[in-house]
């Protein structure tokens, strides 16, 4: 805990969370767009990895890289963020994968 506090004080906190793709079309073009637009609002470096496919770790601010992890319905994606606003970034992006908000546009 003490280590974590020190890391956070240095603005170097690294966090991750796993989300499941619920949509029948998977992580489709417009959903990927929402992820990129949301991720771009944060300073943190944010990555995504398709754990189901053991894909490479890609930059969540790049739509081409997100499309390349080929996330289908049921796949689990690990989102990781590093930087001062890492927690907020992960919370905002995770929300996009919440079924209740799935077909709503990204919060502005």
């Amino acid at each position: 805990m003490e280590d974590r506090n020190i890391r956070e004080a240095c603005g170097d906190s690294s966090h991750s969370t796993d989300v499941t793709v619920r949509h029948p079309l998977g992580l489709h073009l417009r959903k990927s767009k929402d992820v990129v637009q949301t991720a771009s609002r944060f300073q943190a470096q944010i990555t995504a990895q398709n754990l189901t496919r053991t894909s490479p770790v890609v930059n969540a601010k790049s739509i081409l890289q997100l499309m390349q992890i080929q996330a289908r319905q049921g796949h689990v994606i690990r989102l990781s963020a590093q930087g001062p606003d890492a927690d907020d970034a992960l919370a905002a992006i995770s929300l996009l994968f919440d079924q209740r908000y799935y077909d709503l546009p990204a919060a502005q």
Partner: peptide
């Protein structure tokens, strides 16, 4: 640059598991 990068974009990445 981002637009031109699409020329090299693999729509069906060969390296991923195929399920």
């Amino acid at each position: 640059q981002a637009a031109e990068a699409t020329a090299q974009f693999e729509k069906i990445p060969r390296s991923l598991n195929s399920y």
